[in-house]
Design a protein around this nucleic acid. Structure first.
Lengths: 144, 144
DNA sequence: ATTGGTGCAAAGGATTTGCAGTCTA
DNA sequence: TAGACTGCAAATCCTTTGCACCAAT
C-alpha cells in the first residue's frame, strides 16, 4: 500500500462530501477507511483492511472496521462479494461487474463486462424481485 | 421430511454402491446422510441436516455431519454453494446449474438451465484454469 | 445535554480439530 | 488386527454486541 493512501484525513474534503452524500456521519475513522478504499478499485476483507490500517500507523478498532464496512455496504458505498465461505470481501467498485476468484491466494479480480454476457430470465417467486446477479468464476491451478 | 427418508440404512444397497463408486468408505452414518441427501435434489446446510437427522431419530454427531458433507463434496457427491456468508449450502444435484437465493428464508432454488444463458470469456491468469462458474441470483421482497 | 460513534472485551455462530473409543475391511 | 471413522468437547476464526467513554451538534 503506497504511502499516499496513509495521508492525513483532513486534507481530503472530497471524502467528506462522499460520506455526506451517502448520509453517513463523518468521523476520523471513517475518513481513514474511505481514504484507503476509494483511492481506486479494491477488493478487501475486514482483516486485510485492519492490517493495512496498522501499517499506516492508523488505529481503528476491529469492531469499527467491521461496523464501517457494513455501514458503507448498506448505503451503497461498497458492495459485498460472497465468494469464499471464510470471509466477506468488500468491493469499492459498486458498478455492475463480476469476479474471478482464486481461492489459493484468496484474491478477487474484476471481470471486464465485455468478457461476460449473461441473460437470465428465471421465474422469480411471486412477491420477490431480483436484488442482484452475482457471478464468480472460480479458478484453480492449471494442469500444465 | 417424509418418513421414507428415515428408512433403515441396511435396506439400501444402492447407496452403498454409490459411496463405494466414489471411493468413500461405507459407514452407518454416511449411509444415513446419503439416504437423506440423495433421495432427490436438495439444498441443505450442515445445521439443517443435523436437525433432520434428529427428527429421524438418527444420531449423528455434529462433527461427523460436517466431516461427511466436506468429504462428499471433495469426492464429487455434493456441490458446495457459497451464497450466504453465514453458512455453506450443499447441493445434491452436482450437474451444472445455477441458483436463486432468498436471504430472508435462507433458501436456495435451482435455476433451470433453459432460463439462463451465460457466455464468459475472461482472461484467465497464466497457470490458472476455470474450476467452476457460479451464478447466484439474489432475491428480495418485491415492491408491491 | 443529547445523540451518534468508537474501543475494548466478551459473546456468538459456523466449522475444525484432538483424541480416545469403535467399527470396517 | 490395522486403519478408518465417530463422538464429544475444546479450540478457531470471522463477525456481532454490550457498554462505558469521547466527540459533535
Amino acid at each position: 500500500m503506497s504511502q499516499a493512501l496513509c495521508m492525513p484525513v483532513k486534507s481530503r474534503p472530497e471524502l467528506q462530501e462522499l460520506l455526506q452524500r451517502h448520509g453517513v456521519g463523518v468521523t476520523a475513522q471513517r475518513l481513514t477507511i474511505a481514504g484507503l478504499l476509494f483511492a481506486g478499485p479494491r477488493h478487501v476483507s475486514a482483516e486485510q483492511l485492519l492490517v493495512e490500517l496498522r501499517h499506516c500507523g492508523q488505529h481503528v478498532s476491529k469492531a469499527t472496521v467491521y461496523n464501517t464496512l457494513g455501514l458503507f455496504s448498506k448505503v451503497g458505498l461498497l458492495r459485498e462479494v460472497i465468494a469464499d465461505p471464510d470471509r466477506v470481501f468488500y468491493d469499492s467498485n459498486t458498478s455492475t461487474h463480476q469476479h474471478l476468484y482464486d481461492p489459493v491466494s484468496a484474491t478477487l479480480t474484476d471481470i471486464q463486462s465485455a468478457d461476460i454476457d449473461i441473460r437470465v430470465l428465471p421465474q422469480i417467486p411471486a412477491g420477490m424481485e431480483i436484488e442482484a446477479i452475482d457471478i464468480v468464476v472460480r479458478l484453480r491451478p492449471g494442469d500444465s
